[in-house]
């Protein structure tokens, strides 16, 4: 009796377990998701492949060194990106020196010190909104503030690297604040409590525990910020980058900063507007240069981050 009872149960179990059906909806969803990924990647790959293919003759015929050390020119066989690289690096330097310390500092104040009042919430929401403001608006702000504002003009020198760099620094500031604040918010409360619990002051808690814990996240935000600063074009065009030529040779450091300039993305824009067919290749080669410089800067930032991480 017992045996037949067991086998009856076993039979029912077997039937239930083996009744495996194909989950049509699930499979379709999975295929759709994979398709979405594939299309995104495909577009990117095709774009990159096309750019590299177009740019190839320039690097092949003239060599990389010649292209990146040549100045802007209206003759395609002599056109290069030297001033663009220098200008872009200057602008990134402004971001590193101004936007990143200010942004991280602001984020620390907001997350660790400021009380949660209506005012802080309004400020918080507005910083998020600022990150979504179109870049061209920042360009207009830059013109008003650094070019037309009489008091600042002697310092910035009008449409100069200083104006462009400061404008880009302001533009990326909200991004620095938001990503840093996210990283700080991800630090577990238990770590703060543990530090307060042994008699640490707020500053000691932040310095010894919160910042080291949040550092990788803050660095990641920084890297994203640099990428953004590199790629930004519109405000720089407003601030005179496209038409400018970087003063070369004898000019001193400050004069260079106050002088006309250009940057890699603006150079892309400038070359792309030329009608000569040969400039298509120059444009593509400039894009490749932009990508490579961007990757180099990011790689440096990542190496620095990893080295910093290992210390803790």
């Amino acid at each position: 009796m017992a045996a037949t009872h067991v086998s009856a149960t076993a039979g029912a179990v077997e039937q239930a377990l083996r009744g495996r059906r194909t989950d049509v909806g699930g499979v379709a969803f999975r295929i759709a998701l994979f398709g979405a990924l594939l299309i995104s990647l495909l577009v990117l790959v095709i774009l990159l492949a096309d750019v590299f293919r177009t740019a190839w003759p320039v690097f092949r015929d003239r060599g990389v060194a010649d292209f990146v050390t040549s100045n802007i020119s209206s003759l395609p066989e002599r056109a290069g990106v030297r001033q663009g690289i220098i200008g872009s690096l200057y602008i990134v330097a402004f971001v590193v020196v101004i936007a990143i310390p200010l942004g991280i500092g602001g984020a620390i104040y907001m997350e660790e010190y400021a009380r949660d009042t209506r005012l802080t919430r309004v400020i918080n929401a507005n910083i998020r909104n600022l990150a979504g403001v179109p870049a061209i608006v920042y360009g207009l702000l830059g013109i008003a503030l650094f070019v037309q504002f009489q008091a600042l003009q002697p310092i910035t020198g009008g449409r100069s690297i200083i104006s462009g760099g400061l404008t880009i620094a302001i533009l990326v500031l909200p991004i620095v604040i938001i990503t840093s604040a996210e990283a700080l918010r991800a630090v577990p409360r238990s770590i703060r409590e543990a530090a307060f619990g042994v008699g640490a002051t707020r500053w000691e808690v932040v310095r010894s525990h919160v910042l080291p814990y949040a550092a990788p996240g803050i660095f990641t935000g920084t890297i994203l910020t640099l990428a953004r600063a590199f790629g930004e074009t519109a405000p720089l065009i407003l601030l005179g980058a496209a038409t400018g030529f970087l003063s070369t040779g004898s000019a001193g450091f400050v004069d260079t900063l106050k002088g006309p300039y250009t940057a890699l993305p603006t150079l892309v824009f400038a070359y792309a507007r030329k009608n000569l067919r040969a400039f298509e290749q120059i444009t593509a080669a400039t894009i490749v240069t932009l990508l490579v410089v961007l990757l180099l800067v990011n790689a440096t930032a990542i190496i620095l981050r990893n080295r910093y991480e290992r210390k803790w």
């Binding site: 577990p188 238990s190 770590i191 409590e193 543990a194 619990g197 042994v198 814990y213």
Partner: peptide
């Protein structure tokens, strides 16, 4: 106060 009055929390929370 917190130096004189130590605390052990519910979940072990050593510093990393």
């Amino acid at each position: 106060v917190r130096r004189r009055i130590g605390m052990v929390f519910q979940k072990p929370n050593p510093f990393p």
